[in-house]
Amino acid sequence: MTTTPSTPADPKAPSPHAQPYSGGRSEDDKALLRAAAELTRDLGTAKGSIYWPDMVGSALVGYGALAGAIVSDSLWLTAALAIVATLALYRALLFIHELTHLHRDALPGFRTAWNLLVGIPMLTPSFMYEDGHTIHHSRKRYGTPEDPEYLPLALMKPWTLPAFILVSLLAPIGLVLRYGVLAPLGLLFPRLRRMNWARFSTLAINPMFRRRAPAPEDRRRFVALETGAAIWAIVLIASVLWIGWRPLAVALAVFSAVAVLNQLRTLVAHLWENEGEPMSVTAQYLDTVNVPPPGFVAALWAPVGLRYHALHHLLPSLPYHALGEAHRRLAAHEQARGTYNRAHYRGMGPLVGRIAASTMRRPGASPAKDEKRAASIEATP
């Protein structure tokens, strides 16, 4: 059984035994990968006693605060409740990331409950993340043009960063149109239905990504989820006829805030410095970001374990509630910490500054390639 020191060493101190990783993008730090596997063997079980109350509680708090914001006559109370609703629903929504990595037999009923409570009401059913996120974790396809969740943002023009954030403001309206208009029309026009699936059924930031048809074993489930989301979107559109614009407007404002917060988190989830070449697991790890404690603000903008995003790329099947302990063990491990600690950052501000500074330097960048990438952001669904 693996044990950890009772008094962990200073994680920033160099280990006298560890050799710093200096490999290229195709080489791995085998000591880090071995330590990550060995030190976390006892942490791989998803605990329903944590998942269920966290997800359900976040959703109920979020919807309760949203309802209060809709009916409140006080501007300040409405704003305060909208903030609570944004943070709570954002946390509930990000369980979609956990669903992608949970084994199908783990936590029976959790996927269905999440879709009914969060995915369909927020027009982001789980199939929008399934499959695509698996590609993002592929050693051969991470950071390549086939990766739906990667753009070399650090190598693009500076103005693409605010465009990347601002486009997310329109995400809720886009989702209402995708499910409330395009999905029903797709029943009449097969070509539109195929386009809707290929281009607008994945939570992607790479506008060149085209989704393939679902696997036969998933088709019925995906159709059921899309149907549920379409019915709900039609209800939302029709609701203005009998309850007016305010409820829908407030809800869309909160969902836009959720989308912007998620886009900011996405912006600092990676360093975005790969131009399309396949990368080793270690190189992927170093292109990804941890924002570990002692700071607590990251737990708000990167909840459900996403403050340990780089660690997640090392151990994608580890449940979110185990990432903190895994981090402590690896940060104290003499052979691993030299490379492991290189993916740690202090917060969102320094990361945005680093990426923005990189867009301004861009040594040897291709103007034609930059123009194509920059223009493509505006087309991102």
Results as ranks from 00 to 15, higher is better:
1 M>W: 09
2 T>R: 13
3 T>E: 10
4 T>V: 10
9 A>R: 11
19 Q>D: 10
21 Y>A: 08
25 R>E: 14
26 S>P: 00
33 L>F: 09
37 A>R: 15
38 E>V: 10
39 L>C: 11
45 T>A: 13
52 W>I: 08
56 V>K: 05
57 G>A: 07
71 V>Y: 09
71 V>I: 13
80 A>L: 15
87 L>I: 11
89 L>M: 05
93 L>D: 09
93 L>E: 10
95 F>H: 14
96 I>W: 01
98 E>P: 01
99 L>V: 07
101 H>V: 04
104 R>H: 14
105 D>S: 15
110 F>H: 13
112 T>L: 14
117 L>R: 00
118 V>A: 08
120 I>W: 10
121 P>A: 03
123 L>G: 08
132 G>W: 08
137 H>C: 06
141 R>V: 02
157 K>V: 04
159 W>H: 14
177 L>F: 07
178 R>A: 12
181 V>M: 03
181 V>R: 00
184 P>R: 09
186 G>M: 08
189 F>V: 15
194 R>F: 03
195 M>Y: 12
207 P>W: 03
223 V>Y: 07
224 A>T: 10
225 L>N: 06
226 E>N: 05
230 A>N: 03
237 I>N: 05
238 A>F: 05
241 L>Y: 06
255 F>W: 13
258 V>I: 15
262 N>M: 15
272 W>H: 15
276 G>Q: 08
278 P>T: 00
285 Y>D: 03
286 L>Y: 00
299 A>C: 06
306 L>A: 06
307 R>A: 04
313 H>Q: 03
316 P>A: 08
317 S>K: 12
319 P>T: 09
323 L>F: 05
335 Q>K: 11
340 Y>V: 07
341 N>C: 14
343 A>D: 01
344 H>Q: 13
344 H>E: 15
347 G>T: 11
362 R>K: 09
363 P>W: 10
367 P>V: 10
373 R>Y: 15
375 A>H: 11
377 I>L: 06
379 A>N: 12
379 A>T: 11
379 A>R: 14
381 P>V: 13
